[in-house]
Design a binder for these strands. Structure first.
Length: 470
RNA sequence: GGCCCGUUCGUCUAUCGGUUAGGACACCAGGUUUUCAACCUGGGAAGAGGGGUUCGACUCCCCUACGGGCUGCCA
């Protein structure tokens, strides 16, 4: 049936614009992107907007935004399936002409009556149109649908790159409608025509389309077109193993962006979810592109694991170059409608990245740790920080300040000075680090006090200490 | 109901007839430590159940159970 074309790979992602970009859809898009880009092929985007009731331009925009955030780029413009309706109808007529389809005058009521009777008698409810072999002379002057004259004997076989050989008995498949009685094409017809016209060689999509694939193959056969390679990937389930739905929390990709995961980590995690390359867990785009293949895709549905996502995200944040991380953090701020960074904060954050990115799993976590450089004097003290600055502590800070005044601003020396002052009071470094932390950041969860001093610089450090020493 | 797909530690997975069934995340214990982390060391943790095939099955076949999908003139 399907044979693997050796020509350049062409894949596509074909979402329905009826809402946000689903996390499962995002992974499907990612797999298609990896497969095509890893082989120098093309990755196309087609918006399946033939359902005029449910499709909205806002949803299309949200999907494109999601893909862009994930870092997936597509070739050419996103294609509107609805725009191709004339061509779809034309193909339906061709099938009529070559005898692989027929006009069906059955009404909605006829079909319903047929099904009810079938149910009552315990027969299959697959509709069998009386018009399949009707003499054209008996055709009424009424609207009709064009149905595929599907083979009744034998089987339709799919050689799926993930699921293996899947066989459907043809008597399990009915004559599907290709062109509705209002002359609009059905999804089943439109996908096949579009995939063929766009030269798609590999269809990588959700498992939920596996049965559809059999019907679609019949259309390819009716038109004498080459069948592409199918790869039906398992769906993503919620943490409880049930189909992923809104009650599991985040289903839309944008929610993940809002949670502050970095895009590179998201790609890594999603790629690894349902696909493997031996024991490799952490990898960058270049490796993913080189390693990704259809054979590595698993056959069972996978569950989302936020802990692991966090871990992977953290790994990528830690590895990212500062210059690249900063704009991504700013994009995150915009995405969650938080105030943009001032030029000063931007400068400060860039300097603070070195001591914050390695310990943050997400952007909000990183921003939390970088609070000391984002805040400006006079610092607002959190309750715990205020508590750490008791009279005794303030006294020690007062003693520390003049010594810092003349220090050369390098880590070793700062550490030596602070340790010496602590020792003079018979205290460990830990006892003095607390108040220092409080004075420098106004909080108790921060990077190392020495890192903060280095980032803040002498003047700002001294100013903050003086603010609290009084 | 019918058809189709799936089932290895809690989770993601490796294994492609012969392994003490490996790794990662999570978890537990210990270490390191100026907070939060990070990091280091160690630990517990799996082949859904039942039949076959085979000298030998997680790997192949069948049945059952469970999960999922499709069964529209939705996509």
């Amino acid at each position: 049936m399907s044979s693997a074309p050796q020509a350049p790979v062409v894949t596509r992602f074909a979402p329905s614009p009826t809402g946000y970009l689903h996390i499962g859809g995002a992974r499907t898009a990612l797999f298609n992107w990896l497969y095509a880009r890893g082989r120098g092929g093309k990755f196309l985007l087609r918006i399946e907007d033939t359902d005029r009731e449910r499709s909205t331009p806002e949803a299309t925009a949200a999907i494109l935004r999601g893909l862009t955030w994930l870092g997936l780029d597509w070739d050419g413009e996103a294609v509107s399936q609805f725009a191709g309706r004339a061509r779809h109808a034309e193909v339906a007529r061709q099938m009529l002409a070559n005898g692989t389809a027929y006009k069906c005058f059955a009404t909605q009521e006829d079909i319903e009556a047929f099904r009810e009777a079938a149910r009552a008698e315990g027969r299959s409810t697959l509709y069998q149109s009386p018009w399949r072999d009707a003499d054209p002379a008996t055709h009424p002057d009424a609207p009709y649908a064009i149905r595929l004259k599907a083979p009744r004997d034998g089987a339709t076989v799919i050689e799926d790159a993930v699921q293996g050989t899947v066989t459907f008995r043809n008597d399990q498949l009915d004559d599907m409608v290709c062109l509705r009685s209002d002359a609009t094409p059905t999804y089943m017809l439109a996908v096949v025509v579009d995939d063929h016209d766009m030269g798609v060689t590999h269809i990588i999509r959700g498992d939920d389309h596996l049965t559809n694939a059999a019907r679609q193959v019949q259309i390819y056969q009716a038109m004498g077109w080459q069948v592409p390679v199918f790869a039906h990937i398992p769906l993503i389930h919620g943490p409880d193993g049930k189909k992923l739905s809104k009650r599991h929390g985040a289903v839309g990709l944008e929610e993940y962006q809002a949670m502050g995961f970095c895009a590179a980590g998201m790609r890594n995690y999603l790629t690894r979810l349902g696909w493997s390359h031996g024991n490799d867990e952490l990898f960058d785009d270049a490796q993913a592109l080189a390693w990704f293949d259809l054979a590595g895709i698993g056959r069972a549905p996978a569950r989302l694991d936020f802990k692991k996502l966090e871990n992977v995200s953290g790994h990528h944040i830690a590895k990212a170059a500062d210059e690249r991380l900063l704009p991504e953090i700013e994009a995150y701020l915009t995405a969650v409608a938080r105030p943009a960074l001032t030029a000063q904060q931007r400068d400060g954050l860039l300097k603070a990245l070195a001591c914050t990115k390695e310990r943050a799993k997400t952007f909000p976590e990183l921003l939390e740790k970088a609070h000391f450089v984002l805040a400006s004097r006079p610092l607002e003290l959190e309750p715990k920080a205020a508590a750490a600055l008791d009279a005794v502590s303030r006294g020690i800070l007062r003693e520390l300040t003049p010594q810092l005044q003349d220090a050369s601003w390098v880590r070793n020396e700062l550490e030596a000075i602070v340790s010496a002052v602590a020792a003079a009071h018979g205290l460990g470094l830990g006892k003095i680090a607390g108040p220092l932390r409080a004075a420098l950041a106004g909080r108790m969860v921060t990077p190392s006090v020495f890192d903060m001093m280095l980032v803040l610089g002498r003047d700002e450090t001294l100013a903050r200490l003086n603010d609290q020493a009084a």
